[in-house]
């Protein structure tokens, strides 16, 4: 699993990153967390409101700071219906 935190370094982006790390640690899973600060790369995802969270190249949230609880829910294997 690959997680990317998109954000150009605003305070909210740092909070989101910290929450992601917390969620990952609590779930005890191995994931690759990457921080994307390059604006051109962020824009490629179509995101205009940062911070955004990308899991396996899919934008799962943008424009808000998810709590670690909310991130944990996203980390569960999702069922696609």
């Amino acid at each position: 699993m690959r997680i990317k935190v998109l954000g150009s370094g605003c305070p909210n982006c740092k909070i989101l990153e910290a929450n992601v790390k917390k969620a990952v640690n609590e779930k005890k899973i191995k994931v690759n967390i990457e921080k994307v600060t390059d604006i051109a790369k962020i824009m490629e995802y179509g995101v205009m409101s940062t911070p955004a969270l990308v899991i396996d190249e899919k934008v799962v949230s943008y424009g808000k700071v998810l709590t670690s609880e909310e991130i944990k829910r996203l980390l569960k294997p999702r069922k696609f219906t």
Partner: peptide, 8 residues
Amino acid sequence: CSAVPLFI
């Protein structure tokens, strides 16, 4: 901090 992505 969101001005730049918004603008682009």
